[in-house]
């Protein structure tokens, strides 16, 4: 009785060992293939990133030439007094962008990321930009604040930043728009 089980067990072990050794031999061949594919995939990833970069630049050159390009970024520092919910952006009285934030996006902003909220074209001259920020403020109350900036657009790319900061003096959030040089 035990002999048969022993035989079965031994047979299973032998079969397993044979299989495993066969698998090892097979692995060495396919492992090389896998390695080659892995390297090929990594090389392709690099190329695709390169192509994506070129198309990104081409798109900007085509749609937003440097002489008229105008971009607005948004940052949050550090978000203790305002849980950002939504932002609306007006340029010269027209709404050009609005955004509702997911938790993941808010977290990315609070960790130091900056969102490019808008990119467009503006001719040279004076323009007015207004940002409306909504969220949950101190004491868990709905909070709205706006900030405006009149700025002079020259012949170079213009970039503004909507900055949402914590103001420790009165424990309130503060929204401002600053111009990047």
């Amino acid at each position: 009785m035990t002999d048969f089980f022993k035989t079965l067990l031994a047979g299973a072990c032998v079969a397993m060992m044979l299989f495993m050794s066969a698998a090892v031999h097979a692995e060495s061949g396919t492992a090389e293939d896998s390695q080659a594919v892995a390297e090929r995939v990594e090389d392709l990833k690099k190329k695709v990133i390169g192509l994506n970069r070129d198309l990104f630049i081409l798109e900007e050159d085509l749609l937003f030439p440097a002489s008229t390009q105008f971009a607005v970024f948004l940052s949050v520092d550090a978000g203790e007094f305002l849980k950002l919910d939504a932002v609306k952006l007006k340029v010269n009285g027209d709404i050009v962008a609005s955004h509702l934030y997911t938790d993941r996006q808010v977290s990315a902003l609070e960790r130091g990321g900056m969102q490019r909220l808008f990119i467009g074209n503006l001719k040279t001259g004076t323009h007015e930009v207004t940002a409306f920020v909504e969220g949950i403020g101190p004491d868990n109350r709905a909070y709205k604040q706006a900030a405006s900036l009149a700025f002079e657009k020259g012949t170079d790319t213009a970039a503004l930043e909507i900055r949402i900061q914590d103001r420790s003096s009165d424990y309130q959030p503060m929204v401002s728009i600053v111009e990047w040089e």
Partner: peptide, 15 residues
């Protein structure tokens, strides 16, 4: 971020 593009990179990375 001392450069908006760097901030933008971080925004994408953190997501």
């Amino acid at each position: 971020a001392g450069d908006p593009v760097y901030g933008w990179v971080l925004y994408n990375y953190y997501q």
